[in-house]
C-alpha cells in the first residue's frame, strides 16, 4: 500500500522523538517498533538528515552519527528542537479510541488488564480529542458466554504464543460435536465473535473455529508442526463458496443482504429476492430458522425441503410432549 504523506510525516517526527531518548538504536529495532521494513527506516533517516529549519546551514539540520549509521544503528546527535512528541489530532484520537473500545468489548477481553489500562492512558493522552469518541456506542460481549469465551481465549492465546497443539471439543453450526487436534495459526475477530484459525488434524486442512462453540480446549503439551499455509490470513472469515442460495425475504430483512454481501436481484412491494453466496449449508439453515416468517421462499429446493422437514420434526416435539 502506498504510504500517505501524513503517515510518513507522523513517523518521521515520531522517530526523532524516539531517538532523542535513546542512543545507538539498531535499524532492525526501529523497523519492528514502527512496523515498517528496515529499508524504509534507512530512507527515513536519509530524509531526516537533510531536514531542518530554514536557513539549512549545517547547524540548522538534524544530525546523526555517521559511524553508527554505517553499522546499521541510529544515533541522533542534533534534534533541532524537533524531538517533542506530537499530540493526537481529534480524528486520530477518535479512530484509535473507538478501535480499542471495540477490542475491549470483545468476549473475553473485558477483563484483560492491559486493554483496560491502555484505554485509560490513551483517553488521558488524547485530552479533549477523546470527548468526541464518547458519542460512539459499541456492542458489548454477550454476558451469557463471556466467562466461557474468556477461558477458551486464554488457553488458545497461550498455546498460540508457545506454538503448542491444542485439543478441541467443538460443536459445529449443524450441532455435530467432534473432538480434534488443532495447530493454532492465529486468533481472529470480526468485532463480535472470536475465531481460532488453525490447522485441523482431523480434516487435514485449515479451519476456523468459533470460540463460542468450543465446548472444551486443552493444551496437549505437543509442539504444533509447521504447515504449508500462511500463518496470517489477514481476513477474519474464509472466502469460499459452496452454493448460491436465493432467498425471498420481507423488505425489513434487507439487512441480510447488507450484512452478508448478498445481491438484491428483484424488489417489489412486500418482497425482495436476495442471492447469497453460502460457504456452509448448516449456516444457511440457521439463518433461515432465525429469520422465521421473514423468509418467504428459499432455493435450492432441496435445502428448503430439508430445513422444512427439520422444522416440522421440531414442531412435533412441541406437540408430543409440551
Amino acid at each position: 500500500m502506498a504510504e500517505s504523506t501524513s503517515e510518513r510525516l507522523a513517523r518521521l517526527l515520531a522517530m526523532v522523538a524516539y531517538l532523542a531518548d535513546r542512543d545507538d538504536v539498531p535499524v532492525a529495532e526501529l523497523a519492528a517498533h514502527f512496523g515498517v521494513p528496515q529499508a524504509q527506516i534507512m530512507r527515513d533517516v536519509d530524509t531526516l538528515w537533510v531536514s531542518g529549519t530554514p536557513g539549512y546551514q549545517p547547524d540548522d539540520l538534524l544530525d546523526f552519527s555517521a559511524d553508527s549509521y554505517d553499522a546499521q544503528r541510529i544515533t541522533l546527535t542534533n534534534a533541532r528542537g524537533m524531538d517533542r512528541p506530537l499530540r493526537l489530532g481529534p480524528g486520530e484520537a477518535v479512530a484509535l479510541i473507538v478501535a480499542l473500545r471495540a477490542l475491549a468489548n470483545l468476549p473475553g477481553m473485558g477483563a484483560d488488564p492491559a486493554v483496560a489500562s491502555a484505554l485509560a492512558k490513551l483517553t488521558a493522552a488524547a485530552g479533549d480529542a477523546a470527548e468526541a469518541a464518547e458519542a460512539v456506542a459499541l456492542e458489548t460481549a454477550d454476558p451469557a458466554l463471556d466467562a466461557h469465551v474468556s477461558r477458551v481465549l486464554g488457553t488458545a492465546r497461550a498455546a498460540l504464543a508457545e506454538g503448542e497443539r491444542v485439543h478441541l471439543r467443538y460443536t459445529s453450526a449443524s450441532d455435530a460435536t467432534t473432538e480434534r487436534d488443532v495447530d493454532p495459526l492465529e486468533l481472529l475477530s470480526d468485532g463480535e465473535a472470536w475465531f481460532l484459525r488453525g490447522w485441523c488434524l482431523l480434516s487435514d486442512a485449515v479451519r476456523h473455529f468459533r470460540l463460542d462453540r468450543v465446548a472444551a480446549i486443552t493444551r496437549t503439551g505437543q509442539d504444533a508442526v509447521p504447515h504449508e499455509v500462511a500463518s496470517t490470513s489477514g481476513r477474519v472469515r474464509p472466502e469460499q463458496t459452496l452454493l448460491q442460495a436465493r432467498l425471498e425475504l420481507t423488505p425489513r430483512s434487507r439487512w441480510v443482504a447488507e450484512r452478508f454481501g448478498g445481491e438484491i436481484l428483484a424488489e417489489r412491494d412486500g418482497a425482495i429476492l436476495v442471492a447469497l453466496d453460502v460457504a456452509d449449508e448448516a449456516w444457511l439453515a440457521r439463518l433461515v430458522l432465525d429469520l422465521g416468517p421473514d423468509v418467504l421462499g428459499l432455493e435450492p429446493r432441496g435445502l428448503a425441503e430439508s430445513i422444512a422437514a427439520r422444522a416440522a420434526a421440531a414442531l412435533a416435539a412441541y406437540e408430543e410432549v409440551g
Partner: peptide, 25 residues
Amino acid sequence: RALTKLRAVSPAASGELSGHVLRIP
C-alpha cells in the same frame, strides 16, 4: 498515525497479542 505518535514515547511492544487479528466492520 495515532499509534505512530504513541510509539514515539513507548517501549517495544510485547508479544502478548501477537497473532491476533481484529477487523471490525
